[in-house]
Design a protein around this nucleic acid. Structure first.
Lengths: 189, 189
DNA sequence: TTTGTGTTTAACTATATGGTTAAACCATTA
DNA sequence: TAATGGTTTAACCATATAGTTAAACACAAA
């Protein structure tokens, strides 16, 4: 059947593109390299995904989707807020250990072109992060959690989940800025 | 005076190259971009540093030097081993927060070409890491610290310094693999 | 078998990129 | 002033790279 071959080739390209883009970034990746990795002719890349940037976008979108999907925990209002936060942080930690390349990749691409990056992210993220922030703000208003900047709140809890304590063990200067940047980016700050 | 202008241009190139290479990596960086960032003609890059790889090597060597220099704490045998470990981990944390790009950069370049990377590192690292391991093994033999794999030992202490506990809060699977890779790389494993 | 359609390829083009060269520049010194 | 030598530049070259095209291929329907 034709359809099967179709999806298979497209999948092969996507997998190869993912691998190469993650490794070298948008600028560093070579179309020929992607084609070789996928075991196909270079022209096929353009047949399936018009050009380099469109291919990159597709790969990127997939990666981001997986990442932002995890914010959906916050929509489950049956769970107490702290449970949700814990679950979310737990998922993120798992995600980061499952895709070590991806976290670095996202941080890198973000640092290369924050504006373009943010723009591309918007389409995927939609209101997920907004809803997350809203959920936190509601709980703050209800007095269930302390009133602080939601980003800071999430960051502190991410630290806490790892057994760190913001006040005791960490000073602002000693934080790994990448992690901070990453959390900030996630929330669209 | 000529000497002043000379060093200034070379410095400008080094600074620009550092910035661009850190951002885009060896493959992604463009010589023209480096020249523009330094505010000089592209040919000057080749005048001062023959070719792209040699320039990269110089930048890279500088970065690694700063990093591995911190292992020298272990040569100061007047301090108890635990003090040395603490001081070392402290320095590394400070280094990582001072140069957030660099840590990611090193991890990336390492993942792109481990063999070449290791090779380049050898020249800078020399016996620093060896001495570090030796110091740990000596203390282990003397019964001052528990007998475990020195790499694992250092990794655990790096976690501890951040308030994390290997056994309680972390499972092998949940660890951010990048951090583990980075520590392992540092010691030449 | 022939036709039609979607897939794949080899060969090509235009441009970007790393690198070279010869000449210009400029401060020092004979 | 003229010569010297390190520094800088514009213009160039060869190759790599993204992207295009026309033709071949494969397979299903007529």
């Amino acid at each position: 059947m034709k359809k099967l071959v179709e999806t298979s080739t497209e999948e092969k390209i996507m997998e190869a593109a993912k691998e190469v883009f993650m490794k070298y970034g948008l600028y560093g990746a070579r179309m020929q390299d992607i084609a070789n990795t996928a075991g196909i002719n270079k022209a096929l890349l353009h047949y399936y995904f018009r050009n380099k940037e469109k291919l990159f976008d597709k790969v990127f979108e997939g990666a981001l989707q997986k990442y932002f999907q995890q914010m959906d925990v916050f929509s489950d209002s049956s769970l107490p807020i702290k449970e949700r936060v814990f679950k979310y942080v737990d998922n993120i930690l798992l995600f980061l250990s499952e895709y070590p390349q991806m976290s670095i990749f996202i941080i890198k691409e973000f640092s290369i072109n924050p504006e373009l990056f943010r723009e591309k992210v918007q389409a995927v993220k939609r209101d997920k992060a907004v809803r997350l922030i809203q959920a936190l703000e509601e709980e703050m208003a209800a007095g269930k959690i302390k009133k602080i900047d939601p980003v800071l709140f999430l960051f502190k809890h991410a630290l806490k989940a790892q057994g760190k304590d913001w006040n005791k063990d960490f000073s602002q200067e000693k934080l790994n800025l990448s992690v901070k940047k990453f959390v900030e980016f996630s929330l669209g700050k």
